[in-house]
Amino acid sequence: MSENVARRGFLAGGVGGAVLLATAACTSNQPAAEPSAQGSAPAPAPAASGNDQPGEKVVIGFSAPAADHGWIAAIAKNAEAAAKQYSDVEFKPVEPTNDINAQISAVESLIAAKVNALVILPNDGQQLNQIALQATAAGIPVVNLDRVFPDKLAYRTWIGGDNYGMGVAAGHYVGKKLKDKGVANPVIVEIQGIATLPLTQDRSKGFADALKTYGFSVTAKQDAQFTVETGNKVAANLLQAHKKIDAMWNHDDDQGVGVLAAINEAGRKEFFMVGGAGSANAMREIQSGGSVLEATVTYSPTMASSAIKLARLIAQGKGMSDLVENQVPQSITLASETITKENVQTYLPLGFES
């Protein structure tokens, strides 16, 4: 989106088996979820067997927002790294941009170049829906990455994170901890990304629904636009408005840099905090044991690696080798897992830098 949203698995070896691992590695959004290979590290080189054997040469176009945010930067990095694994893939990225019209023009250039498949992370799914429809009408399959196009005719396959599941995971961590501590009527604050976006609304709904199972609700919430500066300002305002807080959920680890700075500046330590996305700096805070940040729930940018692998299979007319069906699924939702001090060592090498 033009608002520069940060949104957020990992395919090891054959894309079929790996997507199954990514979607099944964590079947629960409970806080104690088992870790799986999820993060921003480039995928390992695929084994030369099954779907990974060289096939028909294909050109994959790629368009995403500007990499001026840690999560988005990891998206671009992972897409390029995945494409480089295949001798039969020509990776054709266009200039990343946060301008809607510029992204539309860039995708138009890829359509004119007659690429074999397109991977698009739109700035705004609604506003780029028409250009995705044009690509599809031109016979170019579109892999819609993360921010969904509203018209299903606009894309062949969607792959992305579970925004509702992020909220559920965070809500269970917060709810269970407060319940175990015997806290009654807790003050729970929530720092969103951009409040008007469907992805943010899904996260907030998941959080509220999970808290409800413990008899809790959000006391106050405010959006921070997914930026460090706004995160700092919003956190400072919430800290000033609430002299005592029991728990905080911040939707995004990139804006969390500013949130943590405000907390440290205010000298507040009476509450615990849960982050979102799984950045390396957030994991280091968790690992230190001396921060209010105790956990983060994942939204892995390695979905971009998976998107490239899926685009290759679709362009070559292949299915996912570990599935019975002959075609790649229409939709793949990755699980959101909870990183705590107990499992952070497993995740840390895979985190993206904010």
Rank of each mutant, 00 (worst) to 15 (best):
S63T: 07
T27Q: 11
D88K: 05
A24S: 09
S40I: 02
A41H: 12
P35E: 03
I60S: 01
E80P: 04
A32V: 08
A33P: 01
E90H: 02
K57Q: 13
S49H: 08
P31L: 04
F91E: 10
F62E: 05
N29Y: 11
Q53W: 00
E56H: 14
A32K: 14
A48V: 06
A79V: 10
A32L: 08
P54K: 03
S36F: 14
A18P: 04
I75P: 01
Q85Y: 00
K57L: 10
I60N: 01
S28I: 02
F62Y: 15
T23D: 10
Q30H: 13
D52R: 03
K92H: 14
S63R: 00
N51K: 00
V59T: 13
C26K: 08
A41W: 09
A64N: 04
S87C: 04
H69W: 06
S63I: 00
P35H: 05
I72G: 01
N29W: 03
P93I: 12
A18W: 03
G39E: 09
P42H: 05
A64T: 14
A82P: 08
A79M: 09
Q30A: 15
A79R: 07
A25G: 11
Q53A: 12
P42V: 03
A18N: 07
V19F: 09
P46H: 07
N78E: 14
A73H: 03
P96D: 12
A73Q: 13
S36L: 15
E95K: 15
K84Q: 15
N29K: 00
E80M: 02
K57V: 08
A43W: 10
S28F: 03
C26G: 15
K77N: 13
A82N: 06
T27W: 02
G70H: 11
S40Q: 06
A64W: 01
L20F: 03
A24C: 05
K84A: 15
Q38I: 12
V58F: 02
N29S: 11
P35M: 04
P42W: 10
A67C: 05
L21K: 10
K77T: 12
A66C: 01
F62A: 11
K77S: 15
A66I: 06
G39Q: 09
Q30W: 12
E90F: 01
A22K: 00
S36Y: 14
I72W: 07
L20H: 04
A22F: 05
P93S: 09
K57W: 01
P96T: 12
A67W: 02
